[in-house]
């Protein structure tokens, strides 16, 4: 055991660094999904599509700015602007035109509406951006690499993945927590999450709150995609993968839980990275195994509150 650890301990340390960036991206998507669920009580299958569209939009905008000969540092602005645009346009459109019609429907119909939307948006992405991989890694390149000591050797990591992604994730977490607890709008959202009927009885405009929340959630998914875009090539199908992973994070965390999403994203991100070292065959299964294990012990998720059953 001791010998094994001295040989692999360092490697696992490296795996943790990789897992952090991974966890940060999953968190960004999952937290939006969870926020939306908390208020709308809808699991939005199309959330993954918003991630993908955010990524595509950010890359297109970045490439467009670059083609104008503007300084590459503007690439960072492109990430945020693209996410805001996607969230700000698609979010209200989807909520107003589609979701609003089905709030009083059964859960299965709500789920399927978002599934249908997912199918439509998958093809929309192909029609708009084509099928060839798109890449725009200027923001990642701009930050350069950091040499992390590894025994006698050093291992280069990109500063983007080592610092920026986890940094943005932490900022999002702190910002969201502050917004929900300390601002009036945030408290209203929490009130609707906790007890919609009571909140409405107290005169809260539920329609406004749902619109706002869904837009925020959409923007978070798009931001997750935008942040991921410099590290990966964008191809058809990235949305479908992202959404199942965020489902696992959300269910592990407990529905509606913001901090919980951070912790379970961390567990799942680190778990996957460690699996690449120890048992690469099982890397893809790890998120689901974590989720199943957690739900076995805590049926409402790590931080979920048991719902009272209807009598």
């Amino acid at each position: 055991m001791g010998a094994w650890f001295s040989e692999n301990g360092l490697l696992i340390g490296l795996a943790l660094l990789d897992g952090l960036a991974n966890a940060a991206l999953i968190f960004m998507v999952a937290v939006g999904l969870n926020l939306v669920f908390g208020v709308l009580r809808i699991v939005n299958v199309a959330h993954g599509s918003l991630f993908a569209i955010g990524a595509y939009a950010a890359a297109s905008l970045g490439l467009f700015l670059a083609s104008l000969g503007l300084p590459p540092a503007l690439g960072f602005a492109a990430l945020v602007v693209a996410a805001a645009l996607v969230g700000g346009i698609l979010g209200p459109l989807i909520e107003r035109l589609l979701l609003r019609r089905i709030y009083d429907q059964e859960q299965v119909l709500q789920l399927l509406v978002t599934f249908a939307l997912f199918m439509i948006l998958e093809d929309v992405q192909k029609l708009v951006w084509g099928v060839q991989p798109i890449l725009q890694d200027a923001p990642m390149k701009l930050l350069g690499t950091v040499e992390v000591p590894f025994g006698e050797d050093t291992i280069p990591f990109t500063a983007y993945q080592l610092f920026l992604l986890p940094g943005v994730a932490v900022a999002t977490l702190v910002g969201l927590a502050w917004f929900l607890r300390r601002t009036l709008t945030g408290r209203v959202i929490v009130a609707v999450t906790t007890d919609k009927e009571a909140a409405m009885a107290m005169g809260i405009d539920a329609a406004k709150v749902t619109l706002l929340t869904f837009t925020c959630g959409a923007a978070l998914a798009a931001l997750g995609g935008a942040l991921a875009s410099p590290t990966t090539s964008l191809v058809p199908g990235i949305g479908a993968q992202t959404i199942v992973l965020s489902f696992a994070v959300v269910a592990t965390a407990g529905l509606g839980q913001i901090e919980g999403a951070a912790i379970s994203a961390l567990m799942i991100g680190l778990g996957r990275s460690i699996a690449v070292y120890l048992a690469p065959e099982f890397e893809v299964v790890v998120p689901y195994l974590i989720m199943v294990a957690v739900l076995l012990v805590r049926p409402q998720g790590l931080f979920g509150v048991p719902e009272t059953r209807r009598v």
Binding site: D18, N22, A228
Partner: peptide, 11 residues
């Protein structure tokens, strides 16, 4: 269809 190879690259 993986989109991230960071961990593999570190290894």
């Amino acid at each position: 269809n993986s989109t991230d190879f960071s961990t593999e690259i570190t290894r």
